[in-house]
């Protein structure tokens, strides 16, 4: 479905991505991991044609990315950014309806169909009650769910998520990924840039690790999510244990000697905090 061949991208003279090659088939749910500045966002922006390619090419459904019109591409790919910067008082429903733009024509207005699709998306993201509220007056997490709804309203086969759930509380994070997972089982393709390693390990079937603009590991989660790999890539000590329910690998971070709280009754130092790291 997506084929990336010797892709390179630059900002001015700085090389941000160098010679990436990978292939994604329809129905994959992929976690895109890597430290800050490793090029995750740039890769997603290349895939959504926001950042021009310096070299190489991207082929989506057999067609070169450059050959799509703006609206066509938005019908195939939907993106969820890290956050929304908006200084204008749109209603939340109006923001979600923007996701219907690729299906509308000049002077277009929202049809009944657009409206029910937008409402459906808001139902899935638990934002129906926000519909008539102004986007600049709801909380950060609510805004984020509204943008996810907007992406769902685009009805695209490929979803590109850039830290889409970073601003959400735990319950909503799980709710959103449950939703992505269900959509994935019905054939949707997801590429999710994530800092939350354990969330990635819980839901993604395949992980692509980026470091310094290059792919350093690409493979099934169970094989790639190891203490050795994670410690190497993030340059910090990581231990991996099994999730008690699902058996998915989960990362445990180890504080450096002398810091961290000591759990009562145990001589070993480890933290039991959520592994959220932003």
């Amino acid at each position: 479905m997506i084929r990336v061949e010797s892709l390179s991208a630059r900002y001015g003279d700085t090389i941000v991505l160098q010679d990436l090659n990978f292939h994604i088939v329809q129905g994959e749910l992929i976690g895109l991991l890597g430290p800050n500045g490793s090029g995750k966002t740039t890769l997603l922006h290349c895939l959504s044609r926001v950042v021009p390619l310096h070299a190489g090419k991207i082929v989506i459904s057999g067609r070169d990315l450059a050959g799509y019109s703006a609206r066509e591409l938005a019908r195939v790919e939907a993106s969820v950014p890290q956050r929304l910067e908006i200084s204008f008082p749109f209603k939340c429903i109006e923001v979600v309806l923007m996701g219907r733009y690729p299906y509308q024509r000049d002077f277009g207005t929202n049809s009944e169909d657009d409206l029910s699709k937008a409402m459906e998306a808001m139902g899935l993201t638990d934002t129906v009650d926000l519909a008539q509220r102004r986007i600049n007056e709801v909380s950060g997490g609510e805004t984020q769910r509204v943008i996810i709804a907007r992406a769902l309203a685009q009805e695209a086969a490929i979803m590109l998520l850039d830290e889409a759930t970073a601003n959400l509380d735990v319950a909503h994070k799980i709710q959103m990924f449950d939703l992505f997972s269900r959509m994935n089982q019905r054939g949707g393709t997801f590429i999710c840039a994530l800092h939350d390693l354990n969330l990635a390990a819980l839901y993604c079937q395949r992980l692509i690790f980026l470091k310094e603009g290059q792919i350093c590991i690409d493979g099934p989660t169970l094989e790639t999510f190891t203490a050795e790999n994670l410690s190497n890539i993030y340059q910090t000590e990581v231990k991996v244990i099994e999730h008690p329910d699902t058996g998915a690998p989960q990362a445990m971070f180890v504080p450096s000697k002398g810091s961290g709280q000591r759990a009562a009754g145990s001589g070993q130092v480890f933290t039991t905090k959520d592994t959220k790291m932003h």
Binding site: H45, S48, R49, V50, S69, A70, R71, E72, L73, A74, R75, E77, A78, S79, P81, L84, E85, I86, S87, F88, F90, E94, V95, M98, G99, Y101, P102, R150, Q154
Partner: peptide, 17 residues
């Protein structure tokens, strides 16, 4: 309307910016 969300999102929503 869509351009007020910024150039990046406008592109991703299918606007020929």
């Amino acid at each position: 309307d869509i351009l007020t969300l910024g150039e990046v999102q406008a592109r991703q929503l299918g606007v020929d910016v």
